[in-house]
Simulated scan of single mutants.
Amino acid sequence: MNASDRTPADLLRSALAADPARPLVTYYDDATGERVELSVATFSNWVAKTANLLQDGLSAEPGERVALLLPAHWQTAVWLVACSSVGVVADVGGDPAAADHVVAGPDRLDEGLACRGERLALSLAPLGRRFPTPPAGYDDYAVEVPTQGDVFAAYAPVDPDAPALSVGGTELTGAELADRARADARRLDLASGARLLSALPYDTWEGLSAGLYAPLAAGASVVLCRNLDQLSPEDLQKRVESERVTSTLV
């Protein structure tokens, strides 16, 4: 952990400098059988491309709000850090009518149409596949993001004391978020190299912290599980063993 890191983007830069090859997010969807593992380097590349899409494609500016209508998913984790990189507020489950932009999953597309700004749709299909046809009123993230640059540079410095995240009625600055992530890492006893399995949804701070921020702050990694209730206890134990999980939150 680096005590000087004051935003999620800072935490990711420190993780990249420390060990780019280590796993950061391992994602399972037990409704589809999907498994995706992203190293720190691969995750950082997705963040850079997504931040460039935010800044250049959506013309998002620091202080604007992006409603993230997305479940616990590896691409949601990417969006959370990309928002921090640009300086926009990641409004998790936020009101799209009050947001400057919206990013919606396939089951919340109708809701997201209330946003009058730019709209991006994520299929959340295995391998990050695009929609067969872009949903009406949306651009397809999987079509737009591959052409973005692999290196991101913000046009304006990100203020660590500006709002960075809104979830469940709680709004945090980048600095508050980083401090909470480090505190949670200590509370969860996450040391460097630890593997935390989390099946908590991303609609609370606890879920976001366990599913991304605390492992990122600790130099640990997360095994992020969606639809874990479809897994038998025996298969869950096999996963814990095969993924070298050191602690679980389900």
Score class of each variant (00 low, 15 high):
Ala82Tyr: 03
Ser209Asp: 09
Ala114Met: 14
His73Val: 00
Val89Cys: 14
Tyr138Asn: 15
Arg182Asn: 10
Tyr27Thr: 08
Val36Cys: 06
Ala217Pro: 07
Leu80Thr: 00
Asp95Thr: 15
Ser59Tyr: 07
Leu249Trp: 10
Leu127Phe: 12
Arg13Tyr: 03
Ser84Phe: 09
Ala125Asp: 05
Thr147Pro: 14
Arg119Val: 03
Gly193Ser: 11
Leu12Asn: 04
Ser59Trp: 10
Ser14Tyr: 04
Phe152Ser: 05
Ser39His: 03
Ala90Trp: 00
Leu208Phe: 09
Leu165Ile: 00
Gly94Tyr: 00
Ala125Leu: 04
Asp229Leu: 11
Glu37His: 11
Asp29Ile: 00
Val36Gly: 11
Asn45Arg: 08
Leu58His: 10
Glu61Asp: 08
Leu190Arg: 12
Val88Glu: 01
Thr7Val: 02
Leu196Gly: 07
Ser14Ile: 14
Val40Trp: 11
Leu127Pro: 09
Val92Lys: 05
Arg13Val: 00
Leu190Asp: 14
Phe43Gln: 05
Leu11Ser: 11
Tyr155Cys: 10
Ala142Thr: 07
Glu144Lys: 07
Asp19Gly: 14
Leu16Trp: 12
Ala136Pro: 06
Leu197Val: 11
Ala3Ser: 13
Glu171Leu: 15
Asp30Pro: 06
Val158Lys: 12
Ala175Lys: 05
Phe131Met: 02
Glu171Phe: 05
Ser39Phe: 05
Ala51Asn: 02
Asp100Thr: 08
Gly169Phe: 08
Arg195Phe: 03
Glu118Ser: 04
Pro8Ile: 01
Glu111Lys: 07
Gly57Arg: 07
Arg13Phe: 11
Ala217Asp: 11
